[in-house]
């Protein structure tokens, strides 16, 4: 039997090869047949979940909440030392220096990443800005968000921190971060569906056994998860979901 492993569509494009390498090494280590699915959008991911086609999913924390509480998925593991953070940046020459310098009516570019938007909205609160106070400019990529900020077409852009830090040096030199989150406790999680409950431990053990091994560590390095993964139990997942719940409004 082949299990479908879905990777949430919010990873940086240069990590694409890494996820395929991970799928290969996980199959080898666990003895499980895994089929990697990399949906192009959050909507495509939601449809695959709703269709019951996803046996294991590397989910962003925002989606993990409903997958666990509504779809019965169980948390298996999470990356060590790789929390989901975001950056709000403006043009290097902008008169803005802090989030509090943003005013109602300001223009902010962002991609279709719910976690980034959610955390970003919370970081705008000290400026007394709500979602309705901002003119949102949806873009397809973080590079596009960067270009808009640099050209002054928006006052600021939202970035997944990892994506911001992997922009070219030339690009980041033309940007000025107003804030970078340091939430620490919010991470992606590997979830498994109850229909693969009997195999979940094998998948987890394979994942946890990657760090420091000749075949596993290069894959982790490629994914930017140098510390590897740690096991996650039900209460760990529930704790993070409670935490996400506090950030919804």
């Amino acid at each position: 039997m082949t299990f479908n492993l879905l990777i949430a569509p919010d990873f940086a494009p240069e990590r694409f090869a890494g996820w395929h390498m991970l799928n290969t090494v996980l199959q080898k280590k666990s003895g499980l047949a895994l089929h990697l699915i990399t949906p192009a959008s959050a909507a495509e991911q939601a449809q695959l979940i709703a269709d019951g086609k996803v046996d294991a999913v590397y989910a962003n924390p925002f989606d993990a909440a409903s997958m666990v509480r509504d779809n019965g998925y169980q948390a298996v593991a999470r990356p060590l030392g790789k929390s989901d953070e975001m950056v709000i940046a403006t043009a290097a020459g902008s008169p803005l220096n802090t989030v509090e310098d943003l005013r109602p009516g300001c223009r902010i570019a962002l991609t279709d990443n719910k976690d980034v938007k959610l955390i970003g909205l919370r970081l705008l609160e000290p400026a007394d800005l709500t979602e309705a106070d901002v003119q949102w400019q949806m873009v397809d990529t973080y590079q596009a968000a960067a270009r808009m900020a640099i050209k002054g077409e928006v006052d600021a852009s939202f970035f997944l921190a990892e994506a911001f830090h992997s922009l070219s040096r030339l690009t980041t030199a033309q940007l000025k971060p107003l804030i970078e989150s340091k939430l620490a406790d919010i991470t992606h999680v590997l979830l498994t569906h109850p229909r693969m409950a009997a195999e979940a431990a094998r998948l987890r053990d394979a994942l946890l056994g990657l760090a420091g091994t000749p075949e596993g560590q290069p894959v982790l390095d490629e994914l930017g998860i140098k510390g590897g993964f740690e096991a996650m139990n039900e209460e760990d997942a529930e704790f993070m979901i409670d935490l996400m719940d506090t950030l919804l409004d």
Binding site: E100, E125, A127, F239, L243, T246, L247
Partner: peptide, 19 residues
């Protein structure tokens, strides 16, 4: 913190307020 339909504790998360 609701576990198995029962409240077993509370989580509090604080963010930066506006001046």
């Amino acid at each position: 913190n609701i576990r198995g339909g029962k409240t077993v504790g509370y989580t509090s998360v604080r963010r930066k307020p506006s001046r």
